[in-house]
Design a protein around this nucleic acid. Sequence first.
DNA 1: CTTGACACAGAACAGACGTTCGGGTATATT
DNA 2: AATATACCCGAACGTCTGTTCTGTGTCAAG
Lengths: 225, 225
Amino acid sequence: MMMVRKSKGLGERHHKILDFIESYQRKSKHPPSIREIGENCGISSTSVVNYYLDQLEKSGHIERDRKISRGVRLSGPNPLGDLLRVPVIGRIQAGEPMPVPTSDFNYFNAEDSVDIAMSLMPAKEKSNKHLFALEVQGDSMIDAMINDGDIVIMKAAQEAKNGDMVAVWLPDRNETTLKFFYKEKDHFRLQPANPTMKPILIKKNDPLEIKGKVVMVIRKMDSVA
Amino acid sequence: MMMVRKSKGLGERHHKILDFIESYQRKSKHPPSIREIGENCGISSTSVVNYYLDQLEKSGHIERDRKISRGVRLSGPNPLGDLLRVPVIGRIQAGEPMPVPTSDFNYFNAEDSVDIAMSLMPAKEKSNKHLFALEVQGDSMIDAMINDGDIVIMKAAQEAKNGDMVAVWLPDRNETTLKFFYKEKDHFRLQPANPTMKPILIKKNDPLEIKGKVVMVIRKMDSVA
DNA sequence: CTTGACACAGAACAGACGTTCGGGTATATT
DNA sequence: AATATACCCGAACGTCTGTTCTGTGTCAAG
C-alpha cells in the first residue's frame, strides 16, 4: 500500500520539507543541512532529500546555493528579511500639536518602535530615515478612516503633492488632521479618506502647516484570542 | 610598523568582520564560513578568524552554533527579524461570498503575499497557520473603517468571542461584512468599528456565517513619492 | 509483457568547514 | 633580561555536507 500522489502539485513530503526548513531557520537562525532535513522528515537517504529539493527549486519554492553548506532557503522576495524599525515618537490627537521628530532624530531614545517589513513599504521609502510613527488617540480621525489605537507611519515633510495623505496643523481650528491633499485654483482641498464625507477647503492665504505624509496605517485587533 | 589597538573595546578587524557578516548575510541570505570571513577581511588563517569570532562572541556581538557550518550570526534582538508571510488569497467585496482558504492554502499557489513582522502580531498568532489576507475592493467596508485597497489579515474561524472583529456572511442580505461581534440575550449584535454608526442586530435563529476573525488591517498610501 | 517515469535507499566521493596545535613576533610588564 | 600578553600564521585532523552513482520496487501506458 503506497501513497499515491502523482501529478499533483506538491506532495506531503514537499510540504513537510518546506515546513521544516521554515521552522528550522526560525529556531536555529540558519538553514538546515540536507541530512537534517532527511532525519526530521523521515527520509533516510540524502539523495532523496536532494531529489525533493531539486523539485522544490524547479517549482520555485526554494532557492539553493549549490556546493555551499546549508545553502537552502525559502524563496520569495524576502524569506526572512529586512525589517524597518520605525520609532513611535508619540501620540496624535485633535486639539494638540502633533509630535514631530527632532532634527537629531536619534531614534534610540524612542520609547517604542514598530517593525515593518520592507516589502510592505512603497519603493521610495526603503530607508527608515525620516520615517516615524504615531499612535492615534481618540476618535478624532474617524473621517480619515483612522481609529483609536491605530498606528500611523509617517514621513516628515513640509510640502505635499496632489493625492498625498498628509498630516496638517490648522491653526485656525486648533486641530491636527489627516487628509488627502489637493492644491486647486485658489484653495487647498483637504479631502477625507471616507468618501461619504465632505472636504475642507482652505484659502491659500490662510495658515496651514504640513507636518508629514502618511505612508501607512496599521490597525491591530488585539482582542483575538 | 604595527597597528596598535590594545585595551580598546573593538579593533578595526572586529568591525570589519561584523560588517562583513552583516553584508554577506544580506546578500547571500546565509551566513559566511570562517574561510570566507578570512578572505574578505584580509586574514590568511582560519584560526585567526576563529580567534576574533571567539572574542566577538564573548563580548556579545555575535552568536555561534559550534560545529555547524556557517553557524555564525549577529546577535541582538533583531539582527534581521522574523517575518510572517501571509498569503493574499483574494479580494473581498460586499455582495459576493468571501474567499476562504482551501485546505491546501498554505503555500505558494497564492497569487501574492504580504510580510508582517512578528513583533506586530498579537501573541497568539505567532504561527502563520490559519492566517490569510484579503484585499478589500470597493467602499463597502467604510463603516468598518476599512477602505478600498486596504489589506485585511484574517484568521480562519467559525466562532467568535465577544469583542472580536469578524467577517460574517449574511445570507439574508447577500452580503459579507466586517463587524465587531457581540452575543447578547436573544440576538447577535454586529457593531461597526465606526462609533458613529449603528449596529446590526441579527436574531439568533436567522442565518449568520462567521468566516474568520480580523487580526490586522493595513493601509498603504502608495502615492507617496 | 515490456517500457519508462517515479519514488526511494544506500554507499561512496570530494570538498567544505570548524577545530586544534605548534610556532612566531611584536609590545608591555616585572 | 625574563616573562606575559595580544596578535597572527600555517598545517593537519576529523567531521560535516552536497553530490553522484547504482540498484530496487511500484505503477501506469503501450
